[in-house]
């Protein structure tokens, strides 16, 4: 621009004070340029995140079924009322709670313990770290499939190991087929796969504690236990809580692993919320009903995560 008015005096002025970007780009204001950059992302976000969410909210108040054509009727809050009075839904929520709470508890304790050991920097700790991280890098589909084989009563390594260690007949129990065992079978697989992830985050926490704090404590005559309680644990607590948050959200919506292992069975003992949701949406084709359930799950996770993040920030600020 300004090709024709480029006299010497104007050029001098321009050199002295750089003209704003907006003037140089076809009269756009700085704000306009900012929008130009952010715009595509916002449009994409609206199209694949916000719009489906709003559409789902709308559907949750209708009797819409995706496999039927016909009139879509507004049914008010009837879907929500049904869900909250549905015993199956509450059973699914219990199965989810069992899965989430136990996986988090075990993964956190194991993950932190492993991180604590790895942090001691023994010989070859890099090799062991890599080895421990392997499960986490596999696809859930692969993990689900080969754990199915491991749990085979006849040929599975898991049953063989249990019977070798305890003397129980290896064909006398089925990890995936028994009501009392199946909920634990999926917990075991998730722990196997995701403990390394928790370990990695905890390791980052432990590595962030500077050596000189331990040295100060040593000079101050703090025993190893006191150092652990008053330095290691509180200083890595934000990291541990972050790991719990990530695993909590992930496992609340866990679908692939469980669908592959048990598909919610036997009966509906391992039918967690996401599997119930999928069945309502794509097997019974109750689209409106399942939309309402999805919204309820969304609000629950969103609310819990929010409360949790507040707590996390409090711990961080200490």
């Amino acid at each position: 621009m300004n090709e024709h008015s480029g006299t010497i005096s104007i050029a001098d002025k321009a050199a002295a004070t750089p003209r704003p970007v907006a003037v140089r780009v076809r009269g756009l204001s700085d704000k306009g340029i900012a929008w130009l950059f952010v715009g595509p992302t916002i449009v994409l976000l609206l199209a694949i995140n916000i719009f489906p969410l709003i559409w789902t909210i709308y559907l949750s108040f209708t009797n819409y079924a995706a496999n039927r054509s016909g009139e879509v009727k507004n049914v008010g809050t009837r879907n929500y009322e049904r869900i909250l009075n549905d015993a199956d839904i509450w059973a699914a929520m219990q199965a989810t709670a069992h899965f989430v709470i136990w996986t988090i508890a075990i993964e956190t304790v194991l993950g932190f313990a492993l991180a604590y050991l790895i942090d001691k920097k023994f010989r070859g700790h890099g090799f062991w770290t890599t080895l421990l991280l392997l499960p986490m890098m596999l696809s859930p589909a692969v993990v689900g499939n080969f754990w199915k084989f491991l749990y085979e009563p006849q040929i599975g390594l898991f049953n063989y190991a249990i019977s070798y260690l305890t003397g129980i007949d290896r064909t006398s129990f089925q990890m995936l087929g028994e009501v009392s065992l199946a909920p634990w079978a999926i917990v075991i697989v998730d722990v196997w796969m995701w403990t390394p992830y928790v370990m990695l985050i905890c390791l980052a926490g432990l590595r962030s504690i500077p050596d000189y704090i331990y040295e100060a404590a040593e000079v101050d005559r703090a025993s190893p236990w006191r150092q652990f309680v008053s330095i290691t644990l509180p200083m890595s607590m934000p990291f541990i809580m972050l790991a719990v948050l990530f695993r909590g959200i992930e496992n609340f919506k866990m679908f692939d692993l469980i669908n592959l292992l048990t598909s919610g069975g036997p009966g509906s003992t391992t039918e967690v919320a996401s599997i119930t949701l999928k069945r309502a949406a794509f097997e019974s084709w109750r689209t409106g009903y399942s939309s309402a359930f999805a919204i309820i799950l969304f609000v629950a996770v969103f609310g819990l995560a929010n409360i949790y993040v507040k707590a996390l920030n409090k711990v961080k600020q200490r």
């Binding site: 000189y212 704090i213 040295e215 100060a216 404590a217 008053s230 200083m235 200490r318």
Partner: peptide, 15 residues
């Protein structure tokens, strides 16, 4: 039985 003051602030941050 020595006391050591480090160059960095080696305080116990949560206390």
């Amino acid at each position: 039985d020595v006391a050591f003051v480090f160059q960095q602030y080696s305080l116990y941050p949560h206390l």
